[in-house]
Each structure stands twice: as C-alpha cells, then as structure tokens.
C-alpha cells in the first residue's frame, strides 16, 4: 500500500506527524483516591485517548488502504497495547510513577486502591524501567507503536476465511516498511553494527511485555465492568467488548 518513493526517513516523519496530542483529564482527579474515583478518571481518559488513536491510525501511511473491517479488527486487537505504550513513554522520566496524563499521575501506592491493580501497576512500572534503561528514542518509539498496530492480529488473520486474500501480504509489506524505518532510526545512533541489531532485538522484545500487560489489563477492565464498579464510556465499552469477543 506504500508509495514506492517513501523512504524510511519519510515514513518516520509521517508517523511522527501522526502522533496524537497530549490529552488532559481536564478536571481535578476526584479525591479521595477510591477505587471508583480512580477507575472513573482512568476510563474517562482512555475513552478520550481512543478517539485520538483512531485519527492516529488513519495517518499511518497505508492504513486507510486496508478494508474497513480490517481497520476495525486491527484497532480492536491492539488498543490497550497502544495506550500502555504511550503511558510508558510518558512515564519514562518518572521512576515509580505512571503519568496517565499531564494532570493525572499515580504512584504505585496510589494505584493500590483499585483491587487487582497492583500487579498491573508493577508490570507497567517494570516495563517502563526497561524503556528507560534502553534510552528509547522518540523515532524508535513511534515505529514500535505502529508495529503494535500492524502486528496486532497477525496470528488471528489467517484463521479467518472472510479476510480478503491480499490483505495479509499488504499488512506484511507495510510491517516490513516500518521495520526498515526502525532499523534506519537505530542506525542513526552511530552504534557499532553488532549493537544495532542487538538493540533492534531488545526493542522488539519490549513488545511481548506490552502484549502481556495489555492482556492482564483487559481482564481487569472486563472484571471491573462485570462488577459494575465503573460506568464505561461508549467507545471504550465497544473496544472492550470487541476484545473479549475476539479472545473467547
């Protein structure tokens, strides 16, 4: 789906331009920090972010060339991973805290008020430490996020007869182009050749942790919904239900 003239450098700049703006919660975090208040703020924020995520995906070169159902499926599979990757990126300079938005950050202890959160919090904080350790660069970060989107249903797509036959090869070609862009970004650092490809491996290995935490988070959110602890907003509810449906 990519125009052949799009070099790795151009592709990265297009993906950088697609980055969503900073999203503010825009109201004081409801105090005291009770389970209901924290969940209310986080789901409110997630719902706002999801709207921007759709615009982001549409600006990834090649994405809108996919069929509408394919676009839906990709986003439904990856949305929490993309939200979590953004959260880790925002939190990278704040050890021990998660910066959900410029006006909402929570320490590990504050997150504990939500039942079942501490495990997910710890995994997010640990993954963020790894990002810090790797000194992830902005260009690398945007490539990884695009890869999460394009790779999200790679292991589901072949089992579904309804997909158009060229869809998978289109997806693979686009994923290759983003991989070239990531390799280009790593090469810019001037690292010795061997360290460039070990860095590529380390960056891609981050994604398996992100997938893992996202699955944990999805189960948690589903649980909160079932227990009626928090009212879910329309888009967030739709995305959660779709995910639960795909995975069952």
């Amino acid at each position: 789906p990519l125009p052949p003239a799009l070099t790795p450098e151009h592709l990265i700049s297009r993906i950088m331009e697609a980055e969503p703006p900073e999203i503010y919660l825009m109201k004081d975090m409801n105090r005291p920090l009770t389970e209901a208040n924290v969940m209310m703020s986080l789901t409110n924020l997630a719902d706002k972010e999801l709207v921007h995520m759709i615009s982001w995906a549409k600006k990834i070169p090649g994405f809108v060339e996919f069929g509408l159902l394919e676009q839906v499926h990709l986003l439904e599979c990856c949305w929490l991973e993309v939200l979590m990757m953004g959260l880790m990126w925002r939190s990278v300079d704040h050890p021990g805290k998660l910066i959900f938005s410029p006006d909402l950050s929570l320490s590990r202890e504050e997150g504990n008020c939500v039942q079942g959160f501490s495990e997910i919090f710890d995994m997010l904080i640990a993954a963020t430490s790894r990002v810090r350790e790797l000194k992830l660069q902005r260009e690398e970060y945007v490539c990884l996020k695009a890869m999460i989107l394009l790779n999200s249903n790679m292991c589901l797509i072949s089992s579904e007869g309804s997909e158009e036959p060229q869809s998978r090869s289109k997806l693979l070609r686009l994923l290759d182009a983003v991989t070239d862009a990531l390799v280009w970004a790593i090469a810019k650092s001037g690292l010795p050749y061997r360290q460039q490809y070990t860095r590529l491996a380390h960056l891609l290995m981050l994604l398996s942790h992100v997938r893992h935490v996202s699955n944990k988070g999805m189960d948690h959110l589903h649980c909160m919904k079932m227990k009626n602890i928090v009212p879910l907003y329309d888009l967030l509810l739709e995305m959660l239900d779709a995910h639960i449906m795909h995975s069952s």
Partner: peptide, 13 residues
C-alpha cells in the same frame, strides 16, 4: 462497533 466505524469513516477535517 458503531462508534469505531463512525470515527474511521469520518473524513479528516
């Protein structure tokens, strides 16, 4: 996925 479809098919401003 009504809302998602709606956002995907909206033309950028």
């Amino acid at each position: 996925h009504t809302k998602l479809l709606q956002l995907l098919t909206t033309k950028p401003e």
